Amino acid sequence: MQSENRLFDDFVKVMNGAAGTIAGMGREAEGAFRDRMREWVGGLDMVGREEFEAVKAIAVAAREENQLLKARLDALEAGTWKDQAASPSKPRRKPGAGATAGQ
Rank of each mutant, 00 (worst) to 15 (best):
D35I: 05
G31N: 08
E4T: 15
S3K: 14
S87M: 14
Q103D: 12
G98E: 14
V60A: 05
Q103F: 13
G20K: 12
M46Q: 07
L69E: 06
R38Y: 06
A99V: 12
K13I: 11
N5P: 03
D74G: 02
K56T: 03
A19G: 13
K94P: 03
E51V: 04
K90F: 12
K70Q: 11
G48M: 00
E53C: 01
L69P: 00
R92G: 10
G102F: 13
R6L: 14
A101S: 10
T100Q: 15
T100Y: 15
A18G: 09
E53G: 01
R63C: 07
M1N: 14
G20A: 12
R49V: 08
L76I: 04
P91K: 05
R72K: 10
G48P: 00
G24V: 04
G48Q: 01
D45G: 03
S87I: 13
A19P: 04
D10I: 13
V41T: 01
G43Q: 00
R92Y: 12
R63Y: 07
W40I: 13
A62N: 07
R36V: 09
D9Q: 10
E51K: 01
A54R: 06
F11V: 08
G17R: 01
G79R: 12
L76V: 05
G48F: 00
A62L: 07
R34W: 04
L44W: 01
N16W: 11
A78G: 03
A32N: 09
P88K: 02
D9T: 11
G26W: 10
A62K: 07
V47W: 09
L68V: 09
L44P: 00
E53D: 03
R27M: 14
T21F: 15
K90P: 09
V47F: 07
S89N: 12
M37K: 06
G24Y: 02
M46H: 07
F33Y: 12
D83R: 09
V41I: 03
E39K: 06
V12I: 09
R38W: 05
M15V: 14
A23N: 09
T80H: 15
A18P: 05
G102H: 12
R49C: 06
M1E: 14
R27Q: 11
R34Q: 08
L73T: 05
G43E: 00
E77T: 05
G42P: 00
V47Q: 10
L7R: 13
G31A: 09
F8S: 15
Q67C: 08
